[in-house]
Design a protein around this nucleic acid. Structure first.
Lengths: 216, 216
DNA sequence: CGGCAATTTGAAGGCAGTCAATTAAAGTGG
DNA sequence: CCACTTTAATTGACTGCCTTCAAATTGCCG
């Protein structure tokens, strides 16, 4: 993610704007794993900035299933898309979340182009991710898992090393797979010596090139 | 789609702004079905306003397959997401398309909050659609087809009547299905008397309620 | 160390894909 | 307007990937 999208984009140079933005904030508030931050159907009064931990946005189905649309890491803004809260926002791990009043942010954006363009950059960035994600959902289980692991590795910033912060169930629901298929796919990658595992949630990429070939 | 997102949002009341925007435009240019408007990998110098016909954005896979990420109807803006043109933009039917210089639009947005917020509304709207689409891709073939037909019906504005403007192949690639599965699914809906067909591409919804139940 | 939750593994079944052939529709030239 | 060609869509038989259901194993936390 470009630096401009990080929360620190509005710097020390503009106390007035900084104050105005600060006035919109509440928190950070702490959530324990699986706690709901905003409920599907709620009024979308706030958007959320992840301070620590991992947050997921989910859509629940009538039949009991669910889809995890996205994971958000520290520095990411959540809840932008759902102006009517079409998704529930939940803590995927223990997490600290800053609340930002949507209406206030919008009214600042209405006369501050820099804020408007900042939000535009965020929305565009999320749109790009959502489209990539949608395309990924049309591909094979192996391709989905590899892409997810590779992307997560990049986002977490440790090259060739991934410590999965969320459960296999969350990942499976994100990839449109069952936990069984996810587990089997990871085992298969391990047996092919493309990845290795220190423990269940600690993975090492052994052959990044070969992995990337498999996503094509 | 909210009225504010339509291209006519900047009205007669502001000749200067209107002129500035007009100066960014080229066209409308005519494209025949299957012609490429912008190629995957191109610099994204323009964004596009569909004037008539249907436009699709596609991602091609190395193995020869492709995914149709979205269809765009008259009044829709295309090519917003791909700042680096990660998708190709093509005419799904004969179409007229207006070209708008991206850089110029962005520089206007940098000091015109109304333009910035207009773009923000478009991006947010597209983000919502992309997320809904991604979730849809995790569901069954029947659910995907029903949702697609229902949504298209709404977008085309003829209640309970759909004249498919694009080929089954395009629809199948959009839904992550094969044309065979798409065909079988439609036939099945027809046999269940949920829809009827005047001809291959002319459909009538016979039981909207029952259809909507099946998407849950 | 015990108990619960998370993950893995196995066996069987179903949904969607593949391959192939037929039918329907649309375009072309006489 | 009709015969012909080409493209698009349908249908059938079979395969395979992923799911489902069930049981065993691992890991975590008190």
């Amino acid at each position: 993610m470009p630096k401009v999208l990080k929360a620190s984009a509005f710097g020390q140079d503009e106390p007035t704007l900084k104050q105005a933005l600060a006035a919109l904030q509440r928190g950070p508030i702490r959530f324990r794993r699986n706690n709901v931050i905003a409920c599907e159907g709620d009024d979308a009064d706030y958007i959320f900035l992840v301070v620590s931990g991992v947050v997921r946005s989910c859509k629940a189905f009538k039949n009991g299933g669910r889809s995890v649309v996205a994971f958000y890491l520290p520095g990411d803004l959540v809840g932008w898309a759902d102006q009517k809260c079409t998704l529930s926002i939940e803590a995927a791990t223990d997490a600290m979340v800053l609340f930002i009043k949507r209406a206030g942010l919008m009214s600042i954006a209405a006369h501050e182009t820099r804020v408007a363009n900042f939000l535009l950059a965020i929305a565009t960035n999320e749109l790009q991710r959502a489209q990539d994600y949608a395309v990924l959902m049309t591909r094979s289980a192996k391709c989905r898992v590899i892409t997810f692991l590779t992307d997560l590795s990049k986002r977490l910033g440790k090259k060739n090393y991934i410590e999965l912060p969320m459960s296999h169930q969350d990942i499976a629901d994100h990839l449109g797979l069952t936990i069984e298929t996810l587990s089997r796919t990871i085992t298969q990658l391990q047996r092919s010596e493309l990845i290795a595992r220190a423990s269940l949630r600690k993975l090492t990429v052994r052959n990044a090139l070969a992995l990337s070939q498999l996503t094509k």
